[in-house]
Design a protein around this nucleic acid. Structure first.
Ligand SMILES: [Zn+2]
Ligand SMILES: [Zn+2]
Ligand SMILES: [Zn+2]
Ligand SMILES: [Zn+2]
Lengths: 157, 157
DNA sequence: AAGGCAGTGTTATAGTATAACAAGTGCGCA
DNA sequence: TGCGCACTTGTTATACTATAACACTGCCTT
């Protein structure tokens, strides 16, 4: 199975959840940061959804489970996950999605299907190189998001 | 003067404002859409600022001039300008900026200086080609934004 | 025990954006 | 002339997104 670009293809979802959680736990141990119950559960929620979720959607789940009911609880956990690279923020959607390759640091690019709302993560090195150099601009973070329609949705039109 | 990437370089600003307004007026005539006073003034405000502005900042200006005081007035004008390609939305900043090359349709890329808040527009064709094709994804719009530090700010550190 | 630190709980508020409906304007046509 | 239509604007109300600030807890260190 090519895992270059997951998201639009079926896959063993139970496995991809537990494996991502394990990876996150490992990395937290290595980095000396805490993978607390709230943080873990939020990552798990994003992984289960397997698509981008708004902070308040995540919060609703937490609330239903008694893990927190106020916005800062969700926002803090999500910020942590984003900082650690376990999740990404999709600016275009004001939403968050679990990372598809949490092992390495990377600057991700996303393809967002406007029909089924699937968000697929691709790895896109070097995007900005030339114009940035030309302008003497030093890049620290990039946001790369494409909106369109995925193969599945195109086929079923 | 190289106009490849404006924004970080000094330029004749009065000229770039009037010329952008003229271009917009022409295009509206061609397309049969109305370049109303509010729409024109909002574009002018963005051009004068020459950086990204939040919708409520624009609205404050409109209000001071008696052109409208309620959010929808600003949002409608901004939406129009974005639709027509005279301005762009910067997702990362929840803000709007006048287009630097309003003549042709294009998919723009932005470099945002976190120090001086300058927003420079570059033209970036073909960014997403390969990974999108691989996934059978059809791109309709792209958001490409880089945050970092510009040459000027780097020099003065 | 005392103090510091990280995380969580909570209140309150700030900032961003749109739905819905009313009212004005210009324009072609009966 | 006067009506209907398309478009824009004015306004109210509300929804959605996000953070500041402070109190409290548990834990580790001194
Ligand atoms: Zn999965
Ligand atoms: Zn789809
Ligand atoms: Zn200018
Ligand atoms: Zn700068």
């Amino acid at each position: 199975m090519t895992e270059q670009i997951s998201g639009f293809v079926p896959h063993d979802h139970h496995h991809c959840i537990t494996s991502a959680l394990d990876t996150a736990a490992d990395q937290c141990r290595e980095r000396g940061v805490q993978f607390t119950p709230v943080r873990k559960r939020v990552l798990e929620i994003l992984l289960e959804a397997h698509t981008a979720m708004g902070a308040y959607d995540v919060l609703a789940r937490l609330d239903a489970e008694g893990l927190g009911s106020k916005p800062p609880v969700a926002y803090r956990a999500l910020s942590f996950l984003v900082e650690q690279g376990f999740a990404h923020r999709i600016e275009k959607l004001n939403a968050f999605v679990a990372c598809s390759h949490p092992a390495a640091t990377h600057s991700p690019a996303f393809m967002i299907c406007r029909s089924c709302n699937t968000v697929a993560e691709a790895d896109m090195p070097e995007t900005f190189g030339a114009p940035a150099e030309q302008a003497g601009f030093t890049i620290e973070k990039t946001v790369i998001e494409a909106e369109g329609i995925c193969q599945n949705c195109k086929d079923s039109e």
